[in-house]
């Protein structure tokens, strides 16, 4: 167990480069759309991973932050003509504030009870926006058409590649953040809190404060991805950006890929997103939910055979190779 693959900067770089290169090489709009969604969900998974994978606080309400991000940038553009880049930042900040307000009391709860509270927060947000007239309630908002280019994040006619560069940038930000968090004091503290809050306290960790930090980072990242989503689809309503299904998809992607691991959300998204998109292409309306059936089966299989997610599978493989090398070098001692 010298250095785990998850800590290898070069490896992360290679993976990111491959992801970046794919839609540039394959010049198919459909494929590019799938890549955009894949990277978007992977970014959401990375963000969620910080609070749940690292800190062990299961959130079933991350759609709340996603929606806040989407609505903030949209409303700012629509009513005040503020460019989405600034709207994105403001959305992130609002999400952080909301995260603090709702998590501080919710962190008094642990385990399942905390998860249920976050579930409620997501649903409350949905209801709130449905009946909020200022943001057009359930009707939703059509984004105004602005000048072409990166400034307004609008590309006419639809240029998927430009959108892809933006979302890829956001994705890289989440990956780097997750990496920094994982390999710093904060990451150690979050893992300690996840493992044992009492032991964590006894060595000087302010448990509530660090959980809050994790939630803030996670909420911010989720919100900026939400802002991008609104710009990409150019129309949002509460049922698109606040649904429970979105929160659950984020959870599924990360759990199946691997909790508390940088590659986890990437792997999970790489499976679920193409699966859901291609089943839709192939079966149309009749195949609705087929992807989730397959995915559900995958979740069952993964939890039975590899509770650490698919990443665990690769890590085991990696360890076995290392072990073999060690045997060949004649310096094996039992590390299991």
């Amino acid at each position: 167990m010298e250095k785990s693959i998850t800590n290898n900067k070069k490896m992360i770089g290679v993976v990111l480069l491959i992801i970046l290169a794919l839609p540039i090489i394959v010049q198919d709009n459909n494929f590019r759309h799938i890549m955009i969604l894949f990277v978007l969900y992977a970014a959401l998974g990375e963000a969620w991973n910080i609070i749940t994978g690292y800190a062990g606080q299961t959130s079933f309400g991350h759609a709340a932050f996603f929606g806040i991000g989407a609505y903030t940038s949209t409303v700012l553009l629509w009513k005040f003509d503020i460019i989405p880049w600034i709207g994105m930042l403001i959305g992130g900040i609002i999400a952080v504030v909301v995260a603090i307000i709702v998590s501080y009391p919710a962190f008094k709860l642990t385990g399942h009870y905390f998860a249920i509270a976050t579930l409620a927060i997501g649903e409350i947000m949905l209801q709130l926006f449905v009946s909020w007239e200022y943001v057009e309630g359930a009707t939703g908002i059509m984004l105004p058409i602005k000048e072409n280019g990166y400034k307004y994040m609008q590309f006419h006619p639809m240029n998927k590649l430009s959108y892809y560069y933006i979302v890829f940038g956001l994705f890289v930000i989440t990956v780097i953040t997750a990496y920094i968090v994982g390999n710093s004091k904060m990451g150690f503290y979050l893992k300690a809190i996840k493992e044992n809050p009492d032991a964590a306290q006894s060595i000087g960790i302010n448990v509530t404060r660090y959980k809050l930090y994790a939630m803030m980072v996670s909420a911010f990242l989720t919100a900026i991805v939400g802002s991008f989503y609104a710009q990409y689809v150019t129309y949002i309503d509460p049922f698109m950006v606040f649904p429970l299904a979105l929160s659950m998809q984020i959870v599924l992607i990360t759990v199946i890929g691997g909790l508390g691991n940088i590659y986890g959300p990437i792997l999970g998204a790489a499976i679920l997103i193409p699966l859901s998109q291609y089943t839709r292409i192939i079966f149309g309306g009749t195949g609705k939910g087929l992807d989730l059936i397959i995915f559900g089966a995958l979740v069952v299989i993964v939890t039975i055979f590899q509770p650490n997610g698919l990443v665990g599978l690769f890590e085991n493989l990696f360890k076995k190779i290392k072990k073999k090398e060690a045997i060949n070098d004649g310096k094996l001692h039992d590390v299991s």
């Binding site: 493992e195 964590a200 306290q201 000087g204």
Partner: peptide, 29 residues
């Protein structure tokens, strides 16, 4: 945690290692 910062720390009757971390990472924490 504040008491620990003042320099008074304890162990537990039932050991509480941070299981998913290595020995070194435990101590680093």
């Amino acid at each position: 945690d504040k008491i620990a910062k003042l320099g008074l720390t304890r162990t537990f009757q039932i050991v509480k290692p941070l299981k998913s971390m290595t020995v070194k990472e435990n101590i680093m924490t």
